[in-house]
Amino acid sequence: MADFALLHRPALAGAKAGSFGAPSTGARITLTALPEGHVLQVLAARDSDHLQDLIPRIGDGSPHAVRPYGPGQWFVIGDAALSAAEIFGKTPLLDGMASISDQGHGRIRIGISGRAVETVLAKGTAVDLDRASFPVGRSAMTLIGHISALITRTGAESFELLVLRGFAESLWDELIQMSLEFGVDARATQ
């Protein structure tokens, strides 16, 4: 028996929340801590790059559940928490061509939206986020400042960031800084 109980605390529960920066510019940024549901890392076996059509089988069917970030590498994301048994139960769906690793404890999602969202993110990353080259549903693993994050466009003026848990609050604070000129509403509670 464990000597003490492990309590799951949302990584951003104690993060800065409220309204910051310019009072009203019409291009306000909204930062949201998203539910810590499930984050599954899927790695394809060698020479299995053609698995794109297979991966959605283990997702929950929601838009942007499957996020590719390199050849044969995906994150599958959803709002519902999954037990170890439920995750293990998904393995046969990949016909032995890829493995699943639960990263729900290790990565945090942050939603960022607003008319100036591309300008804000461009302060941190060199990825071209223009809608023509980075359409809705596209993902890119990159650096935001010095913090590694997976950027996904979820809408015309909204993105989701997937970041290592230990860096989540740092990134959160930096995003607030980067958004000050437009004004920002940060909602850390879920």
């Binding site: 970030y69 390199g70 050849p71 590498q73 890119a140 693993m141 990159t142 650096l143």
Partner: peptide, 8 residues
Amino acid sequence: HHTSGCRR
């Protein structure tokens, strides 16, 4: 090595 990208 594309450490902070595709890790290839």
